[in-house]
Simulated scan of single mutants.
Amino acid sequence: MEKAPQTDEELLLAFKESNSQDVLAKLYLRYTDLVYGTCLKYLKDAEASKDAVMNIYQELLQKLPNHEVENFKGWLYVLTKNHCLMQLRSSKKMITVEFNPAVMQSEDFMHLDSVLDREQDFKKLEGCMEKLPEEQKQGIQLFYLENKCYNEIVEQTGMEWNKVRSLIQNGRRNLKICMDKND
C-alpha cells in the first residue's frame, strides 16, 4: 500500500520533533522552484540565485527550529525575499573598481585627480546635507549612512512609514538639485 504524501504541516512537525535534515530537505524540495524564481526576480543573476537557494536552505536549518510557522510556503517566500534584499543591500556597500594596468604602470599621477574630484564631491555633499530640512537630513543619514530600513527608522523616530519614505525621497531629490547647482 502506497503511503499518502505528507502535508507541509506534518513535515514541519516531524522536523521540529526530529531535527532531521532529510525531513526538512523533503519539505524544501517542494518549493525550490519558488525559491529559485524569487531569487532570480530580485538578484537577476542565475548563478547568484542558485547560490541563494543553497544559502536559504542553510538559513532554514538555523531559523526554523526557533519559529512557529503556520504557512510554510508563505513564510519561506518572505524568508527568501528578505535574504535577497539583504544580499542586494550588502552588495551596494561593496565598491567594484576596474583594474587598469596602464594607470598602475604610469609614472604620472593622473589618478590623483580623480581622488581629489571625489573629495570635492564629498565636501559638496556635506554642504548640501547641511542645507536640508532637519527631518530630511535625519532620514537620509539613517537610511543611507547608517543603512537602516524604513521600519527601523519608523521605530527610531516615531514617524509614520509614509512620512519616512517621503522624507527620504524628497531629501534625495533636494540633494541632487543642490549638487547639480554646485557643479
Rank of each mutant, 00 (worst) to 15 (best):
A4N: 07
L12V: 02
S91A: 10
V78E: 13
V115N: 01
V69A: 03
L64N: 00
C84D: 04
K16T: 03
S20G: 04
V35S: 12
A52Y: 03
Q169H: 09
F15R: 08
L142V: 05
W161K: 15
R172P: 03
E152F: 01
N162H: 13
C39K: 07
N182R: 10
K41T: 12
K73I: 05
F72H: 02
L64K: 01
L116D: 09
L132R: 07
N174E: 14
E70F: 15
Q136V: 03
Q21C: 09
K124S: 03
Y36Q: 12
S166I: 08
S91Y: 05
K92W: 00
N19F: 10
Q21S: 14
F72A: 04
N174T: 01
L40T: 06
V35Y: 08
V78F: 11
N162F: 12
L34M: 15
A52F: 05
E146L: 11
H83C: 10
K44A: 15
I95Y: 03
M1G: 06
E68D: 10
Y77S: 12
K137T: 11
F15Q: 10
K124E: 01
K92D: 12
F122D: 02
L76T: 11
P5Q: 11
V69W: 00
V164W: 13
P101M: 00
Q58M: 09
N82V: 02
E59I: 01
S166E: 09
N162A: 14
S166M: 08
T38C: 12
Q156M: 08
F99Y: 09
E47W: 02
V78M: 15
C84H: 06
L76G: 04
G74K: 12
K63C: 06
K131S: 09
G37N: 14
F143R: 13
Q21T: 08
C84M: 05
K3L: 12
S90I: 06
M110E: 15
K124D: 03
E160W: 13
Y57K: 01
K181G: 05
C39P: 08
K26G: 10
I153W: 03
E155A: 07
L13A: 12
G139A: 14
K63A: 09
K163E: 11
E17S: 12
K63V: 05
C84P: 02
H83L: 05
F109G: 11
E98W: 00
F15A: 03
M129L: 15
T38W: 07
L142N: 06
E59D: 10
G37V: 07
N19L: 15
V69I: 14
Q120G: 05
D183F: 13
S91P: 00
L29A: 14
A4H: 11
K148Q: 13
M54G: 07
N100R: 07
L125F: 12
W161P: 03
K63I: 03
T7R: 04
Q105F: 02
K3P: 02
K148P: 04
M86A: 10
L167E: 08
K92Q: 08
D108T: 12
W75C: 07
E107K: 15
K148A: 01
V78D: 08
C178L: 02
L34V: 13
K131T: 10
L34S: 11
N66D: 09
E47G: 07
